[in-house]
Design a protein around this nucleic acid. Structure first.
Length: 771
DNA sequence: TTTATCCCTATTTTT
DNA sequence: TAGGGATAAA
């Protein structure tokens, strides 16, 4: 944004370039402030300038300021911006990070309280989704239930939902209304037991346990209350109940609470984000100063207009309008493609054109989609293209099996009670061969009986430990015995080394001692890639080379546990096109955005469609998600969808998303294939824009499509009797009859090898002619 | 206990 | 389609 507002005299340089509302948001430092900030309205700017202003103009010590952001990346970027504003040394001590990192921080800072009130040792580890899943499976079994009937996944989300409103298993039991609720309670209890036994916490605990700690020892809360005189929270619309409680508690003393959010961008309801947090802010703090930032500095008029019209359709919102003084900009382009492969190819070829014409560089471009599954096909198209790309929100590096294996060893070395990691090591490393469930039971029983970490059952078998130990070593029978002592020996060596070696050296030790390389037998490309990932992990560990070995391990593990996918996006984009889920894209912006898969069932997701009749909220959230996608775009926006999409291993017809119909026709150029099926389906406004508009508008614009015949609009093949054809659903067949229809279309009689005779309409059949 | 093979079901989004 | 889990065989 380059609009310069007049400087009043004695004005802080931190206010230059800010509009009056933004200035007010920066300078209203005392008391509760609610900023409702539309997309692209400069809220990050407000946050950074406000922090700079507090430090520089109000002489607030940086360590009295707490800023909570939604991702670590946002925190990092904000810090850099503040550093640039007021100098690096001036921000020393500023606490900035996600709710989760704030949570761990408070737990780590109070090891004594954690041990006495929360039954956790100081070396607790953080369990991520995968670990939680393992735990949930075991919990279901331990509760005497069948994992096939009681899906651990569902249990996990119920447990998480309970924890998000600070409900313990016992409290949940009091409210249980159905048998299913009671099942949840039983699993929840087992789950907690397992967590504690593993000396581990889950993500929700990072938010809930600090609050339990505050309750148990109010002095701890008081210290934080006194310390944090100024608290700022970004993306307030996506906070849940626990987060709300945490922030309210911390802000209770000084009440200098500054929250920024946009109810229209609330997209984490499924994670128990409670939109009431922002809607009720003024009730919670009656003396609130509310500031609305409504001018969009990011996007063209057309994009802003489209976004505004789309979101107006929601019932559950505060009515307001976003506006911009930016130029009108290009038309939004809507494209229908035959299937997801074509969609991906279209996107790639369009990017090629955009780049060739110097309109944008690859790093200026993002492709956004609803589900991670969509990234596969897109990735495939990019892999075979000349473009570099990066995927945000897919299989994350730290979630790859081979990477997790090594991490499991590291975690186990740090926290020998980490049973999930122990099991993982036994299952996946050569040293675990021959050590089955039965032997594991022996180890667990021994650990429980003697109240020791399970790993010690193995260590106790080694001479050095056995000599010093005051408890008898466990007795493993037959086959498990050799394996057990092998595991014991291996870990006793690593335990000895872990405090003296750097993480990278420790990595080398692990690979050497466990003979991990041996589990990569083949030399297939995939195996090589996996081994390369292992090596990549070593590089990652090297970043901690300069850190004291005793500090490095916990610091590294924590960082890994809390890292989000967007966090690892480098600033410059490194010349890569970004492939990203709509959820992860929140808070980001790109000159060029593609929203792929704008189809009913995908965006909005089918679940929301199904729920719509009795619960409209999920549908509204889908709409907000689409809104978030649109508003990421600065200059150029494409929306694509596929007429045919493979899901569940089956093809299904794609119908353009209902949300697209709310975009004003005059802001859009659509090249949607007119077909009898579509014309007869219920009215959509994009179709009104279609007749004639494609041919007439296209020639006057930069984006005159190159002739890409097999893309859009897809021509109908010249089917002849006798042609061998391929149908996406029915497979191979042969045309044995063609009948002209009155509407000019043709009806085809096709005999399919596997599905028998079918009659198909030529314009809809989407078959390829094989011969 | 390990390995191979088959069958079944599931897909939303993430700290 | 794919990945997980169950089943059978060695």
């Amino acid at each position: 944004m380059d609009t310069i507002f007049p400087m009043t005299e004695l004005q802080s340089p931190l206010l230059t370039g800010l509009n009056p509302d933004q200035q007010r948001a920066v300078t209203t430092t005392e008391g509760p402030v609610l900023v409702v900030a539309g997309p692209g309205s400069g809220k990050t700017r407000v946050l950074t300038h406000r922090i700079g202003y507090l430090i520089q103009e109000r002489n607030v010590s940086p360590d009295q300021i707490l800023a909570v952001t939604f991702t670590n990346k946002a925190a990092r970027e904000m810090r850099e911006r503040i550093d640039r504003l007021i100098g690096e040394e001036a921000t020393d001590g500023l606490v900035m990070g996600t709710f989760h990192s704030l949570g761990v921080r408070m737990l780590r800072e109070n090891p004594y309280g954690v041990a006495t009130h929360l039954d956790l040792q100081r070396n607790f580890v953080i369990y991520d989704g995968g670990d939680q899943m393992e735990l949930a499976k075991t919990a279901v079994k331990n509760a005497g239930l069948d994992p096939k009937q009681v899906a651990p996944r569902r249990m996990l989300s119920r447990i998480s939902a309970a924890k998000s409103v600070l409900m313990t298993a016992n409290e949940l039991a009091d409210e249980a209304e159905s048998y299913d609720d009671e099942v949840v309670v039983r699993v929840y209890k087992e789950y907690e037991k397992l967590l504690r036994a593993a000396n581990a916490v889950d993500f929700d605990d990072l938010l809930g346990l600090p609050i339990r700690l505050f309750d148990a020892d109010p002095a701890i809360l008081e210290r934080y209350q006194q310390r944090f005189r100024y608290i700022l929270v970004d993306e307030y619309q996506d906070t849940n109940r626990v987060q709300y409680v945490m922030i309210s508690a911390l802000a209770d003393q000084h009440r200098n609470l500054f929250v920024v959010g946009d109810p229209d961008q609330s997209i984490y309801g499924w994670r128990q984000a409670d939109i009431r947090n922002i809607l009720d802010f003024r009730n919670d703090y009656p003396d609130t100063t509310q500031i609305n930032l409504e001018i969009n500095y990011r996007s063209t008029q057309r994009i802003v207009q489209a976004a505004d019209r789309v979101i107006q359709e929601n019932e559950q919102r505060i009515d307001r309008k976003i506006r911009t003084i930016n130029e009108e900009g290009e038309l939004i382009q809507l494209r229908e493609l035959a299937d997801q492969q074509h969609e991906a190819q279209f996107i790639v070829s369009e990017i090629r054109r955009i780049q060739a014409r110097g309109i944008a560089r690859p790093e200026d471009i993002a492709v956004m989609y609803r589900t991670t599954a969509q990234s596969r096909v897109l990735e495939e198209a990019f892999r075979t293209s000349e473009f570099r790309y990066r995927i945000v929100g897919g299989v994350r590096f730290y979630e790859r099996k081979e990477v997790r294996d090594i991490l499991a060893v590291l975690r186990l070395l740090y926290n020998p009670s980490d049973n999930v990691s122990l099991q993982r090591v036994i299952d996946n490393f050569p040293i675990g061969r021959g050590f089955g469930p039965k032997a594991m039971e022996t180890a667990s029983d021994w650990a429980t009986e003697h109240s020791r970490p399970t790993l010690e059952a193995f260590l106790a078998l080694t001479p050095s430990v056995a000599a010093k130990s005051d408890v008898p070593a466990p007795v493993f029978s037959g086959v498990g015995r050799t394996a057990a002592s092998r595991i014991g020996t291996t870990f006793s060596i690593l335990m000895e080394r872990k405090n003296t070696l750097s993480l990278a050296e420790l990595f080398d030790s692990i690979v050497e001692v466990t003979d991990y390389r041996a589990s990569f037998d083949g030399d297939s490309e995939e195996e090589l890639q996996r081994w390369a990932n292992v090596q990549e992990l070593r590089n990652d560990l090297e970043r901690y080379d300069h850190v004291d070995p005793e500090e490095a391990l916990p610091a590294y593990l924590e960082q890994v546990a809390l890292i989000a996918d967007v966090d690892s996006m480098d600033e410059d984009g490194g010349g890569s096109v970004t492939l990203i889920t709509l959820h992860s894209a929140k808070g980001l912006e790109f000159p060029v955005v593609f929203i792929a898969g704008a189809e009913e069932g995908l965006l909005p997701i089918s679940r929301a469609v199904e729920a719509e009749a009795f619960d409209p909220l999920p549908m509204e959230e889908e709409r907000r998600l689409f809104y978030v996608g649109i508003t990421r775009a600065e200059k150029i926006l494409y929306i694509t969808f596929a007429a045919n999409r493979m899901s569940y291993g089956q093809f299904r017809d794609g119908v353009v998303s209902r949300f697209v119909g709310n975009i004003p026709a005059e802001a859009m150029r659509s090249s949607v294939r007119e077909s009898p099926r579509r014309a007869s389906s219920r009215g959509r406004s994009y179709e009104k824009a279609t007749p004639g508009s494609f041919a007439s508008k296209v020639s006057s614009s930069w984006s005159m499509p190159e002739p890409t015949p097999k893309l859009v609009p897809e021509p109908i093949p010249d089917y002849q009797v006798g042609n061998k054809v391929f149908h996406p659903k029915f497979g191979e067949g042969q045309i044995n009859e063609i009948v002209e229809r009155r509407d000019g279309d043709k009806e085809l009689g096709v005999l399919f090898a596997r599905h028998g005779a079918k009659r198909l309409i030529a314009s809809m059949a989407k078959m390829d002619i094989l011969s």
